[in-house]
């Protein structure tokens, strides 16, 4: 099981892809689907690799994603 998780608020996303680009373990990819504003939000493609470092959360200019570690 992965150490962490990311949570995505797809409706808040504006598709800048900062989170996808700078995720150190490449957990995310932009979806081909649109949100209601017409942006492509990210989705998780490798949940097992997520360390929960929250770098995605720090980069996201739209407060649409964050990461955290699972409590053990």
């Amino acid at each position: 099981m992965s150490k962490g998780f990311v949570a995505i608020n797809v409706e808040r996303c504006k598709g800048c892809a900062f989170c996808v680009e700078f995720c150190p373990t490449h957990v995310l990819a932009l979806s081909s689907a649109f949100n209601s504003k017409g942006y492509h939000p990210p989705h998780v493609v490798a949940s097992d690799k997520c360390s929960g470092c929250d770098l995605c959360g720090m980069y996201c200019p739209d407060f649409a994603i964050y990461g955290a570690r699972y409590a053990r």
């Binding site: 998780f5 995505i8 979806s31 989705h43 407060f63 955290a68 699972y70």
Partner: peptide, 17 residues
């Protein structure tokens, strides 16, 4: 279509909020 494949623990929140 975008179902998040991570399990989000109850009560977790974006730390910026």
């Amino acid at each position: 279509l975008l179902e998040v494949e991570c399990e989000i623990p109850e009560g977790s929140f974006n730390p910026v909020e």
